[in-house]
Simulated assay, not measured.
Amino acid sequence: MTALGFLYPGHSAEDDYPRIEQLLGSDIRADVVPVDVGEGTYRVDPLRRAGYADRLAQPVEGLRLSGAEAVVWASTSGGFVHGWAEAQRQVRELARAAGLPASSTAFAFVHAVREIGVRKVAVAATYPEDVTALFVDFLRAGGVQVVAAHSAGLATAAQSAAWDEAEILALARAADTAEAEAVLVPDTALHTASHIPTLEKDLGKPVLTANQVTVWEALRLTDRRVNAPSLGTLFTREPIVQV
């Protein structure tokens, strides 16, 4: 049994994690601990506060005691709004507090793009434009070429959590371009675990969603590889060999 730990911001789409656990169909356990992030607004200052080290350190002890082998801060925006260097420090402090390998969803996207071997991506974001721009900057700092970005302009995680498959698909279509080799959907408040095959079939290319890459990142930290076609290209592709 491999136990994975996730610090999840608030209560929006945390039920994606037990769903992904079932779809993995293996000896994987996903332990989710909520982190109080207040109203869950998509404004830069509250998003930065949500990812402060002291806020994340408080709930992490429960994950460590549960037997988690790695921990991921399951908030894309709560990582990238700090910028590349500060997001790295955030993860280092989380690892120190947990005594475990650690990462965040923001870095998971960069690692997942490398895993599937693409260079050019489109970003389909629920966020306001200023927050989306910070994600684009973060990806570029990680060596990812962003060729298009679309912002839906939602104000809160609660609004994202209420979206259905049709709305998520419309968001991905709005961002996609012929030049993009993959589409990234960065909001962990969106329920996407059940919709990835539909998204990839419709767009004809890999789609990386926030909760999907978060679980994949935790598996990467524990050196586990699980083949799960129902979770999309990321969970079926052979690893890229770096030369």
Results as ranks from 00 to 15, higher is better:
Thr76Cys: 03
Ala13Asn: 04
Arg237Gln: 13
Thr188Pro: 14
Trp163Asn: 12
His191Trp: 08
Gly40Pro: 03
Glu238Asp: 14
Ser160His: 01
Gln88Ile: 11
Ile168Ala: 12
Ala228Ile: 00
Arg64Glu: 08
Arg92Gln: 15
Tyr52Ala: 13
Thr105Val: 07
Phe107Ala: 00
Thr236Met: 12
Ala148Thr: 13
Gly78Val: 12
Arg92Lys: 13
Phe109Ala: 00
Phe235Tyr: 13
Arg49Gln: 13
Gly153Pro: 05
Val72Gly: 00
Lys201Arg: 15
Arg220Trp: 12
Asn211Lys: 01
Leu134Asp: 05
Phe135Asn: 09
Ala175Ser: 07
Ala87Thr: 14
Leu139Glu: 04
Gln22Phe: 11
Thr2Gly: 06
Ala122Asn: 06
Glu179Ile: 12
Pro229Leu: 09
Pro59Asn: 05
Tyr52Leu: 13
Tyr42Phe: 15
Phe138Ser: 05
Ala182Arg: 02
Gln58Pro: 06
Gly78Cys: 04
Val91Ser: 11
Ala108Met: 01
Phe235Arg: 01
Asp36Cys: 02
Ala152Glu: 11
Asp31Leu: 15
Phe235Cys: 01
Leu63Lys: 05
Arg237Val: 15
Pro34Lys: 02
Val72Arg: 01
Arg64Ile: 03
Ala172Pro: 10
Ala95Val: 09
His150Gln: 11
Phe80Arg: 00
Phe235Glu: 03
Asn227Lys: 13
Arg114Ala: 14
Arg49Ala: 14
Leu234Pro: 01
Val33His: 08
Phe80Asp: 03
Ser160Ile: 09
Thr192Ile: 09
Asp31Trp: 15
Gly40Asn: 03
Gly51Leu: 04
Pro239Ala: 10
Ala53Leu: 10
Ala30Arg: 08
Ala13Asp: 02
Ala70Pro: 06
Gly153Ile: 08
Ala122Met: 08
